[in-house]
Design a protein around this nucleic acid. Sequence first.
DNA 1: AATGCTTAGGGGATATTTCCCCTTTATTTT
DNA 2: AAAATAAAGGGGAAATATCCCCTAAGCATT
Lengths: 214, 214
Amino acid sequence: MNKIDIIIVDDHQLFSTALHSLIGKFEDFNVIKVLNDGAEVVDYFKNGNPVPEIILMDIQMPIMNGIEATIWLKKNQPKIKVLALSMECDEATILAMLRAGAKGYLLKDIHPMVLKHAIHELHNVGFYYTENVTNTLLKSHAEDLNTNTIVLKDRELEFLKLTCTEMTYKQIAEKMFLSPKTVENYREALFEKLEAKTRIGLVLYAIKNKIVIL
Amino acid sequence: MNKIDIIIVDDHQLFSTALHSLIGKFEDFNVIKVLNDGAEVVDYFKNGNPVPEIILMDIQMPIMNGIEATIWLKKNQPKIKVLALSMECDEATILAMLRAGAKGYLLKDIHPMVLKHAIHELHNVGFYYTENVTNTLLKSHAEDLNTNTIVLKDRELEFLKLTCTEMTYKQIAEKMFLSPKTVENYREALFEKLEAKTRIGLVLYAIKNKIVIL
DNA sequence: AATGCTTAGGGGATATTTCCCCTTTATTTT
DNA sequence: AAAATAAAGGGGAAATATCCCCTAAGCATT
């Protein structure tokens, strides 16, 4: 039987190391890489490295957070199944992560056997939600989880993050190595996509969907 | 021995009623009023009603949330000790509530005797923090909790909330029955107080400090 | 009576945001 | 090969936001 290839993404070295050795003990899993930030995920795949079946993804990470990284994966590596592994149990974060495309959501303090089971379910069935998460979904009326097919492009995401800053568009343009007029186009595109009327609307969207985390 | 006067503020009728009858069983407490929203708290005291020693304050409420209400109380009824009673256990909310001036923070699923004990501690010692909250405080380096003495005035708070909206200042002025120029002054005052450079800065502050809840 | 604080309002200038319409070049899809 | 799409850039105008400095009435403190 083939092993399931896994990548671990977590900025907390202690945790990712522990997880690595833990998963190593399960004979049917194979950790092919440990990455420390969402940004490293993007680099990893842009460089054409081996594609895993499953990614165990932390959420809070310094450069690119797990939600952004999952959004990127949805677009660029749609076959990979992302299992969110997080400390946060609040509804907003769970919803944001699932909207981003995660196929499962576990809290970090679960029993190892639950993790093992979750990975298998993800691999065989395609998703795995704990009771906790299911409840959250039901509570939130599961509105637009699947309806909401808003997919932001890389540069749009980058722009959106900078928009949640006290930078002017001119400054954002410099930071993105673009002309102010191009940044202007990103702004207009996002106004449409996210149904915003002003820059404030973009900021609210980004925060609600945890594209920026305060 | 004198009873301790208490006001309950919670929009969830079922809960506040249950709480009322529960506290009624403790002979040393006296619930003098049950209110259903932060806004009712403000009205209550503006009308010169009896002042309690302790307020049990919910956080999520439809019109004015518990954090705003506590900020208002800090300024207008500083002797009242606010005990937050909430479902949220995330760091940001706890910190925001304590910054707002709450003297204690309990989760709603605690044992009644813990609540009783907490109220007594609040009354006698002046504060009561569960281990949970203490941990959160230590983790967050307890930076500016006491240093941060930013007190927003009523109208400033009102303005700030509207600022987190896709309304222009002109529209905000209309809604507040002020001239655009006066709103302009509020903006400038808040820029200084909150160390913001742009309107985005105000929005970020309001969200971080849970003055608006997304 | 004088001082200070709060609340409300204003003038005038500059920078930024927002809107609408248009071009080019490369890549992807059909 | 033709058509659609993504990514980058632009002109010009109107609406908003930001800055700095100033006035006046009301109220509380000293």
